[in-house]
Write a protein that binds this DNA or RNA. Structure first.
Lengths: 142, 142
DNA sequence: TCCTGGATGTCAAGGTCCTTACAGTCAGCT
DNA sequence: AGCTGACTGTAAGGACCTTGACATCCAGGA
């Protein structure tokens, strides 16, 4: 039994797809001066208003320390604000600013378009099935 | 038309799957003192013996500069050697050492196992279909 | 022959992410 | 009250990746 060729392995294909998608999104987001990491945090913040840094880290599946780096950029860009006072414990709520909201909406349009291009002429059934298979993969690894 | 929930978007799922797979592989490779980036280069080098640094960069879809960083680690770990003399132009062939080969074989076994876990009880048809859909996505973005 | 374009290697700087480590805060239990 | 454990924020250092820039080498055409 010879192993499958590199280009046919599921791991390679998933990495490859994510790489291509990330590249395409990064390119589209460049005019907005927004990185994919920053976009992910804005998105998480929109879904969970007032979340703390640690919460955002869990939501985006990175460490608190990584998120701190990204949050610094978002703060200095004026897209988010961090409360001075902790709500509970040491956790300080982070909130989107008006320009943060605007930037997010603009970014979402671009990202949505890239996703549509990626899916191309796949049928609704195929799209659902792809999502289903990927969810299964994630669950199997958890 | 409200946009799809974040967790249902294809982009999110692909990123999520890659993140989970990468995490699992990184954990398994830790005992070997080998990173996923290093594994990718060893694999590319096994498929393309004597490739130059720039060639390896193209194969692994990163920049020459990125590959240089990874190659430094592989060199100091004694897993690869870089020819002193350029073969043509400035391109110097990189080759796997004996311990590089051994390390790669050990790593491949671990990675293969992780991939099998990820696919779980998916049928052969489902696996082929997943690969097919991912390939289509990559092509649509190219 | 010259010289222009393409490819390669390299340096520098910045962004994102990780591990390891430490300090402050709170809830629950003794 | 005092302690312990869990959570949060912070810091330092390293790995990986990017863009931009520069020098070198080779092939092909004016």
């Amino acid at each position: 039994m010879s192993p499958a060729p590199t280009g046919d392995r599921p791991g390679y294909l998933i990495k490859r797809a994510q790489q291509a998608l990330n590249q395409a999104c990064t390119d589209r987001l460049r005019p907005l001066e927004l990185s994919m990491s920053q976009y992910a945090v804005l998105r998480a913040l929109d879904d969970h208003p007032g979340a703390s840094s640690a919460e955002l880290a869990r939501i985006t599946f990175v460490t608190r320390q990584s998120l701190r780096d990204v949050l610094g950029g978002l703060r200095s860009a004026g897209l988010v604000t961090v409360a001075e006072q902790a709500s509970t414990g040491r956790a300080r709520p982070v909130t989107l600013t008006a320009s943060g909201h605007a930037k997010l909406r603009a970014a979402e349009d671009l990202i949505t378009q890239v996703e549509l291009e990626m899916l191309g002429d796949l049928s609704a059934d195929q799209r659902r099935y792809l999502a289903e298979l990927l969810r299964t993969c994630v669950e199997n690894l958890a």
